[in-house]
Simulated scan of single mutants.
Amino acid sequence: MTDAAPPREESLMGHLLELRSRLLKGVLAVVVVFVALIPFANDIYSRLTSPLLAVLPAGTQLVAIEVASPFFIPIKVAFFVAVLLAMPVLIYQAWAFVAPGLYEQEKRLTRPLLGAAIVLFYVGCTFAYFLVMPTVFAFLAGTTPDGVAWTPDITQVLDFLLVLFLAFGLSFEMPVAVMVLVLLKVVTPAQLREARGYVIVGVFVLAAIITPPDVVSQILLAVPMWLLYELGILAGALLSRPSKAG
Rank of each mutant, 00 (worst) to 15 (best):
M179T: 07
A64T: 02
F97A: 04
V223I: 15
S217T: 12
L161C: 11
L164K: 02
L120T: 07
T135R: 11
V199P: 02
A235P: 01
V203L: 12
I75C: 08
I118E: 06
E9G: 04
S171H: 03
T188H: 08
E104T: 11
W150S: 10
G26T: 05
L164T: 03
A141L: 10
L192M: 10
T110Q: 03
V180R: 06
A96G: 09
E9H: 09
K107L: 15
F168K: 04
V55P: 05
A4F: 13
I65S: 12
P175W: 01
L221H: 06
G169C: 08
T49H: 06
V136A: 15
L23P: 05
V89C: 11
E10Q: 14
P213E: 09
T49Y: 03
G26A: 10
V81N: 02
L23D: 02
Q218K: 05
P100S: 11
G236Q: 06
A54I: 05
E104A: 14
F121M: 05
V180G: 07
V31F: 15
T2P: 11
L120R: 05
I210S: 03
L90T: 07
G26M: 09
L85V: 15
Q156L: 13
A54P: 04
D214P: 02
G232H: 03
D3P: 07
G169M: 04
V32S: 02
I73V: 15
